[in-house]
Design a protein around this nucleic acid. Structure first.
Lengths: 236, 236
DNA sequence: GAGTGGTCTAGACCACTAA
DNA sequence: TAGTGGTCTAGACCACTCT
């Protein structure tokens, strides 16, 4: 068996197919039987691959009817508990600007619930799908000055910034507070996201605290409404 | 084969186990081998059940190590009923239209993740501040037909519909799934909320399940962005 | 080394959809 | 009625964790 699970390779091949052939919403995908033939794998493996794509919101499946490309290829984020939060970067990349120590402007301070003039490391990042596609989010990240020794080693890529901070500075996440609102895209965000000004967006402001209760990082993400859906699943 | 998939029954039995035995975070669950013996099913069925629980965030699995109860999402305290979740609910009222049994339109069915043509009781409500002020949300509520005997006794007021259903029909909420997105206000919603068409809004689609895992109620709320913010506070 | 969960095969029957 | 995806069985080998 190869190092990478077969079903992930099949999923990747299907993603590439949809991209290359420019399949739009509603376009049919091959049936499971056709895929087992094409990839020379069992139905189990094909179904695992399709399950993966369905979980990503890329396809929809209906018994008796078939598999089609989903209406809105939106990224879906599930489960707001911290571990899942760190993992949702799975099929996306985060492109970072260099970090700079800056004073919070009054508007930013109000948004983040801090005092204006506080100094934080600030960087701006764009989250894009692996391969190709429209940006999914633009994020302003603020990192507490006590992490100064490691901020220059934060890298673009798949790993979440908070996970990198944990690895580099031995930080453990304790609590995450999120504030979700609908806003109209501003000028800078609209440009970076390649959308029109005023497009409805989800704005998610997060505050990360370590296990001692000290605030460590804050971020403000803006997601175009049609490219992102936030899902919470809770049990009593 | 029974009408209800075997793996859902296994999942439900395991949920009941965790509840009855009061298993806390980190407590080990039986191994897959033990569960195949106990329930007399194949490993596939056991794994589907465990996959279900993992997707709900109830358990965590690690190869070589075993399956344990997951750290509880801190969200849970906020979820028992909608008013506790929505901070403003204490000072608002909910004005209802009468419930009518209707077939889901294709668009609504897609939004709610159901099949078009399914028949549900439908009512539309407007949440307004006590005293005076602009509406805070407009909500379409869908109630499962099995509650037919009590839907006419649902009343406008401060008590959440789900709480009323619980009181009138002896229903207990088991799981709540919420899907949050940013959308532009449509014509009908804009009129009811007295905002302009295209105004950014938070759309929250909720699915309520009873303790047996059966879906009981669904709702779709639309909040003008500047009148509503959704806050999640999660603790590990 | 023993035991765990992760991946995978080759079958089978079923519920549902669409022609 | 033919074909789809959903469920399920009985096996197998593997990567990983713990002791």
């Amino acid at each position: 068996m190869s190092r990478r699970p077969r079903y992930l390779e099949v999923a990747e091949a299907l993603r590439e197919d949809m991209r290359a052939q420019g399949l739009g919403p509603g376009a049919p995908l091959p049936t499971e039987a056709q895929l087992t033939d094409r990839f020379r794998v069992s139905r189990f493996t094909v179904r695992e691959a399709l399950r993966q794509l369905a979980a990503e919101g890329l396809i929809r499946r209906r018994r008796g009817s078939g598999t089609i490309v989903a209406a809105a290829p939106a990224l879906r984020q599930a489960l707001p508990d911290a571990p899942a939060l760190l993992q949702y970067a799975a099929h996306t990349q985060f492109r970072l600007s260099p970090a700079r120590l800056e004073a919070l402007t009054p508007a930013t301070a109000r948004l983040l619930g801090r005092a204006a003039g506080e100094r934080w490391y600030h960087l701006r990042g764009l989250r894009v799908p692996e391969g190709e596609g429209e940006p999914i989010a633009v994020t302003d990240v603020y990192i507490h000055p006590r992490f100064g020794p490691v901020v220059d080693r934060l890298a673009s890529g798949r790993e979440a910034l908070f996970a990198q901070l944990g690895r580099l500075a031995g930080l453990e996440v304790g609590r995450v507070r999120q504030e979700i609102a609908a806003v109209a895209a501003g000028a800078a965000d609209a440009r970076d996201l390649r959308i029109g000004r005023g497009t409805p967006c989800l704005r998610i402001v997060r505050q990360y605290f370590d296990t001692a209760g000290e605030i460590a990082q804050m971020s403000c993400s803006v997601h175009p409404g049609e490219r992102f859906t936030y899902i919470v699943d809770s049990q009593r």
